[in-house]
Amino acid sequence: MNEDVLSVESSVKSKQLELAADDKTIFGFWVYLMTDVVLFATLFATFAVLRNNSFGGPTGGQLFSLPYVLVETLILLTSSFTVGLAILAAHQQSKAQVLFWFGVTFLLGLAFLSMEVSEFRHLVIDGNSWRRSGFLSAYFTLVGTHGLHITVGLIWMAVSFGLIIKRGLGRAVIRRLTLLSLFWHFLDIIWIFIFTIVYLIGAAKG
């Protein structure tokens, strides 16, 4: 009987240790995300300094289509919501729902990325590439770096599908999915500022 109590105690203790280890992993990833914030801050600062240096070329207000960018924004915002639903489903151990919501998130992310690539393509074809002016260099660097992060997120998501199907929803898998969801929410937050600073204020400045 004593042994039973002991084993229950030790299993509770090991469960606590496991959760503490999860928290440490998440904290480490959070620190990485905050250094990524600093990277984006330098790119935002560069853009803010160079935004008026269009070198006789077109300005932001002339180049960007606001409804197009609004659709991009809504797609990314929705994908941030669906990745949250995927994590909820993961906590309820519902594999089908997790796969469904990650699938939706993946497709929305892919739609966002292809809209961005198509926007870049049109700019370059019209002769407004990063070589045109300081403003466009800063624009392509800032928005392109965000797009690169989205691409990495999509690859990570694709790998996660395999992981979920192969290993199910164990603790380690849920921990990884949680990190992925944090990464995805973080990219949506960065996009809020790109939407406001690059596109909305760019349109207001003409």
Binding site: D23, K24, F27, G84, L85, I87, L88, T178, L182
Partner: peptide, 20 residues
């Protein structure tokens, strides 16, 4: 030492409110 993020049991109203 516990630093929680997302490990708490979150619920759907949270996400719906945030999205709205």
């Amino acid at each position: 030492m516990r630093t929680k993020l997302n490990t708490d049991k979150p619920n759907i109203t949270n996400y719906v409110m945030g999205y709205g």
